[in-house]
């Protein structure tokens, strides 16, 4: 074998780099697919584009088994607490791709019900533009995540410990006046409770 002659018997590397190398080639995405981008996500996973070539085909719908959350589609007001809860349920180390214009910035839906960018509410690592992005763009985003994992990853995920401050855009939340007696649907602990009818 020609290869055995070229390579040394052992390599010296850091444990961090080894862990990152293993991690980046086995990202398990959690498809948080809400709208149109979810169909492109399915297209990326199916025959023609085949995300399995990059080691990310193991889509798991349980957040407990995933380390890459792909938010595909717009996130409505009612969905934000659900999204946060799912993000919190994922084990570290974890990353997040905001797929498409709607998830990244609200897109064409600048209305009362749609959140203008999920990065105001959860941390995002890679943004994918497009409405919806082509599958190639999503694959590129996965490659970008892989590069990020290789560069910054550590074996015990201590790189996240340093990031304890909010890094997204300026929060637009404000105190609502007494005449606008409208509140958001609560936090991720209470928002999905079943409500009694009004009458």
């Amino acid at each position: 074998m020609a290869l055995t002659g070229l390579l040394p018997d052992f390599l010296v590397t850091k444990m961090d780099a080894l862990a990152s190398m293993l991690r980046k080639h086995s990202l398990w995405p959690m498809p948080f697919a809400t709208a149109c981008c979810g169909i492109e996500l399915m297209a990326t996973a199916s025959s023609r584009y085949d995300i399995a070539r990059f080691g990310s085909e193991a889509m798991r719908f349980s957040p407990r088994q995933c380390d890459l959350m792909i938010v595909a589609g717009r996130v409505a007001m009612k969905m934000v607490p659900v999204m946060q809860r799912i993000w919190l349920q994922m084990p570290e180390p974890k990353w997040c791709i905001s797929m498409g214009a709607c998830a990244s910035s609200g897109g064409v839906f600048d209305t009362y019900a749609v959140v203008q960018g999920i990065d105001r509410f959860i941390p995002v690592d890679v943004y994918v533009p497009g409405c919806p992005p082509r599958p190639e763009q999503l694959i590129r985003a996965v490659l970008d995540i892989q590069e990020k994992v290789q560069r910054t990853g550590t074996i015990d995920a201590r790189e996240f410990a340093a990031r304890d401050t909010y890094a997204g855009p300026t929060s637009l939340a404000r105190e609502l006046g007494p005449d606008q007696t409208i509140v958001a649907p609560g936090d991720y602990n209470t928002a999905t409770r079943f409500r009694r009818p009004l009458n």
Binding site: A76, M77, F109, A113
Partner: peptide, 8 residues
């Protein structure tokens, strides 16, 4: 329970 994608 619907409305989780209501976007106006």
């Amino acid at each position: 329970d619907i409305g989780y994608l209501h976007s106006g």
